[in-house]
Design a protein around this nucleic acid. Sequence first.
DNA 1: TATCCGTGGCT
DNA 2: TAGCCAAGGAT
Length: 331
Amino acid sequence: MAHPDLPKIHREITDWYLAHARDLPWRREPAGPWAVMVSEFMLQQTPVVRVLPVWEAWMERWPTPAALAAEPVAEAVKAWGRLGYPRRALRLHAAATVIANEHGGRVPGTEAELLALPGIGTYTAAAIACFAFKVPTVVVDTNIRRVHARLVSGKALPEQNQNAAELALAARLLPASGPEDPNGTALANGWNIAVMELGALVCTARSPRCEDCPVLESCAWIAAGRPEPHYKPKGQPWHGTDRQVRGAMMAVLRHSAGPVDRSELLGVPDLALEGQDPRRLNPAREAEPVHQAWVGLHALEAGAEQRERALGSLLADGLAQQSAAGIGLPH
DNA sequence: TATCCGTGGCT
DNA sequence: TAGCCAAGGAT
């Protein structure tokens, strides 16, 4: 698409958004910056449908950064549940603590300030600034990159690593300010969220619903005959990895009332103890999450060395803490 | 810069 | 079914 009719594309995509956008709670008034920030942390690499219930409970319990900062980080990790990447819970709690202590309890509104907070990188800083503070900035996430790659560059997928050219393209595509919107605020905000939503709902990675696309006629990828990706995406191994072991250990820690015995967490189950530990082996309590978490951990094929390594990394990350009582969630 | 970091639904 | 993929960040 050498000379895209940008005003036309802007109108088609923003009109599509007005008609088809999901009604997400962090987009509703009066959802404030904290609501947006919590959603952005949870949405890092996690689908909306899994975030929704956790976000609702989180905002109910911790309606402000100060409320979260006032509680032990273990509570954040437990409330994070099974969203995955629990380090995000640590960082959200840490960011809330900085906000409470250094920003008067209010989420800062500039990208530079946001970028300085733990767990906030380029994307999240831009997203919070744009969505919560209406800053007309360039937002680039995986959805937006994919839409741009297809619509403008004629490729099936964006490059594996985001590069300067993509950022420049995103900046070029941003609607310019007009007489009714001198700062370009509403236009930029509406455009960013609309393109992201289009990528999430229509211009999806695997089975794009091109028949529902508002800019099908302008799409360079369609014009090129929908060529295949020019590379093979790298897989994300799981079975047998340290991550799998860490996940199983975290499940045990999340569901345990207090610290657990280190050797037990590492075990290779001690058959002599079976039936004696009410936390994990009492048949009457089989249905309890903590029991299932223990069973899941012990069922892994990982050897002692790998379990040691996984636990060591959890301790190093601050997701687990060692005390005289054993291994528990951080305080 | 390449790799690591969870979880589960979908194709 | 096995792999792919999801509003990334830190190192």
